[in-house]
């Protein structure tokens, strides 16, 4: 962690267009969940027409069922778990979340998100979480799969907890500051294990962690800060492959002991001797002709 990380800030939801609808109703236990799409066709090999989608359940204490376009996608989805990745046709999806076990015909919707555009080729994670004020929401994030330098990994942090702004520290050093719900920020750091924690912005008051996690080389390691004051705060982790890069070269030696030499000196001597003899004889021959 010696190098100062290069920071790139990404706007939330890039490439994903969302029309949020207000939660129609919250059932007694408040809840959240999410959902993601649905795929009618089992054969989804062509990456040009499909998107890769994961779903994270980050609403505390409330198991849910997730429906996409009216069909059940994940049932009894537990808080703190990640579903997917799913390969889905690009397109628009209506996502609906019900309390686990509820009958969608009669139950009231816990969270819904209509007309979520999941473009073909995108890699996205839809997160069911609490907003800063504690109300359940669905937020789609686009996962950055662009290449990182050799030996490094991208650490992305997403604030999806019912909490104010936070700073994120890795190895005790602040790498992301002032992050607010529901935003994300990324840094590129040397790959390896780090101890990460989340503190209230501008303070040393630890809100979550510390937790040990591995920042994988050539990948995006995405950390979610989620939960609420009542239920407690936790971290969740997702790793998405990004492009790996090759080192810039292979060094190799400093002495020249193994160098390819030019022609050995005795052979050079032989060549020179041949030339000298030819020149001498040629001159003598020419002189004798006069």
């Amino acid at each position: 962690m010696g190098r100062k990380p290069e920071t790139t800030v990404q706007s939330n939801g890039r490439n994903v267009i969302v029309n949020k609808t207000r939660p129609i109703a919250l059932t007694a236990g408040a809840t959240g969940a999410f959902a993601l799409l649905f795929a009618a066709t089992p054969a989804l090999a062509d990456t040009h027409d499909t998107a890769t989608v994961s779903v994270l359940h980050a609403v505390p204490e409330t198991p849910v069922d997730v429906y996409a376009n009216g069909e059940e996608l994940i049932s009894d989805f537990q808080p703190g778990t990640l579903g997917g990745p799913l390969t889905l046709p690009g397109g628009e999806y209506d996502l609906t979340v019900y309390p686990a076990g509820a009958d969608p015909e009669s139950a009231e919707v816990a969270i819904s998100l209509e007309d979520v555009q999941i473009p073909a080729g995108a890699n996205a994670t839809v997160v069911a979480h609490l907003n800063a004020a504690g109300a359940p929401e669905l937020t789609p994030f686009v996962n950055d799969t662009s290449a990182v330098p050799a030996g490094e990994g991208r650490l992305t942090v997403r604030h999806v907890a019912a909490a104010p702004a936070v700073d994120v520290r890795a190895g005790g050093e602040v790498v992301i500051d002032g992050l607010t719900n529901p935003n994300e920020e990324s840094v590129t750091v040397p790959a390896g294990d780090v101890s990460a924690d989340v503190v209230l912005a501008g303070t040393d008051t630890v809100a979550i962690g510390p937790a040990d996690l591995t920042v994988a080389e050539g990948a995006s390691t995405i950390v979610y800060a989620w939960g609420s004051e009542e239920a407690g705060y936790e971290l969740a982790n997702q790793t998405v492959e990004a492009g790996a890069s090759a080192p810039s070269g292979v060094p190799g030696g400093s002495a020249g002991l193994a160098a390819d030499e030019g022609m050995p000196a005795p052979l050079v001597g032989l060549t020179v001797a041949g030339l000298a003899a030819a020149a001498f004889a040629g001159r003598k021959y020419a002189t004798s002709r006069v």
């Binding site: 649905f38 795929a39 009618a40 089992p42 989804l44 779903v55 994270l56 996409a68 069909e71 059940e72 996608l73 994940i74 049932s75 009894d76 989805f77 537990q78 703190g80 778990t81 990640l82 579903g83 997917g84 799913l86 390969t87 294990d193 990460a196 937790a211 040990d212 996690l213 591995t214 994988a216 950390v223 979610y224 936790e234 971290l235 969740a236 982790n237 997702q238």
Partner: peptide, 20 residues
């Protein structure tokens, strides 16, 4: 999770941070 007729199977896992 439970088999769905037309949907691909969705696997879920604990998302707690881990050390590889």
């Amino acid at each position: 999770s439970a088999p769905a007729l037309d949907l691909p199977p969705v696997t879920t896992r604990d998302a707690a941070p881990t050390v590889a």
